[in-house]
Design a protein around this nucleic acid. Structure first.
Length: 278
DNA sequence: CTGTGGTCCTGTATGC
DNA sequence: TGCATACAGGACCACA
């Protein structure tokens, strides 16, 4: 379940290998994975050939690989998407959806079991893909206006967790890090965002930033083989999770068993004692 | 504009 | 053993 730390780990892996590499061949093995390229899979493949990569970039959970000509390869990993850099003699993983041969070095492979992710060419998207204009800045963006963000969050009447997960409010947070941030800030996920004080929302956003930075430092969170970096390696932050997936285990602060609750068609894990409904 | 709930997708785990 | 069901959940879309 790639969220900001996992996507950033992938971006860094790509940054070490793809800049200055030129595409010589593209194989679309699963058309669904390029469904957001409206001209179709054949156009996707042919239009990429001959282009040269620049420095990979990221906003929230979106990743894009700029080309030197001003366009970009826009990617989202969805639930299970991976970029892998494998030598051509290594067997392709069975869920390989797109394979990109470069002029030298390893092959770039997009692997995606559940196919919620995908690739597309973004015209003129090297600096800022127009397709993701609606995606808000993320918490690791040094130019983020924290006060403006606190204000925007507090205009929402829906549950605070819904606001945290809304990528047009703040980007990069998914279900795992939302639960971790709420636990750290001692806020119940269902509290209306506009009921929280500016200080509390500020603390919550700081907690989200901190937990994602800590996760990034250890390569992200991996529960299974669905998230790995470009070399196929797992992250280690699952060992540091305080709330997510901890149902029945004692809260690290007060010892009360962590509770799981259905919320927004997914699971929310929280401490019923530390995180009161207010 | 904001808010809400349905849908897509496949592999794994669980229940009868 | 086999079949059905639940679950994982990010982004998008229709609709109120």
């Amino acid at each position: 379940m790639p969220e900001l730390p996992e996507v950033e780990s992938v971006r860094r892996g790509l940054a070490a290998h793809v800049p200055s590499r030129t595409i010589v061949q593209v194989e679309v093995l699963q058309p669904r994975s390029v469904r957001r390229h409206l001209q179709g899979p054949d156009d996707f493949a042919s239009t990429l050939i001959g282009r040269t990569f620049g420095e990979p970039r990221r906003r929230g959970k979106y990743l894009w690989l700029p080309f030197e000509d001003g366009d970009a390869l826009l990617a989202h990993l969805g639930m299970s998407g991976q970029f892998r850099l494998d030598t051509t003699d290594q067997p392709r993983h069975s869920h390989t959806r797109v394979a990109v041969t470069l002029d030298e070095g390893p092959e770039l492979r997009f692997v995606d079991q559940r196919m919620f992710g995908g690739l597309a060419l973004s015209r003129g998207g090297a600096d800022a893909p127009p397709e993701i204009a609606h995606i808000a800045p993320d918490l690791l963006n040094p130019t983020l206006d924290r006060r403006a963000l606190v204000r925007r969050v507090r205009t929402r009447s829906s549950a605070i967790k819904r606001a945290l997960l809304d990528q047009s409010v703040v980007s990069g947070i998914g279900n795992i890090y939302a639960d971790e941030a709420l636990w750290r800030a001692k806020v119940h996920h269902g509290r209306p965002a506009n009921d929280l004080s500016a200080v509390t929302v500020g603390r919550l956003l700081d907690a989200a930033r901190d937990v994602m930075e800590e996760a990034l430092a250890v390569g992200g969170t991996s529960f299974d083989a669905l998230y790995v970096n470009v070399n196929g390696e797992s992250g280690y932050f699952d060992r540091s999770l305080a709330a997510y997936g901890q149902e029945g285990r004692p809260c690290g602060r007060c010892g009360t068993p962590i509770v799981r609750e259905h919320f927004m068609n997914r699971s929310s894990f929280f401490c019923p004692s530390c995180q009161s409904r207010g």
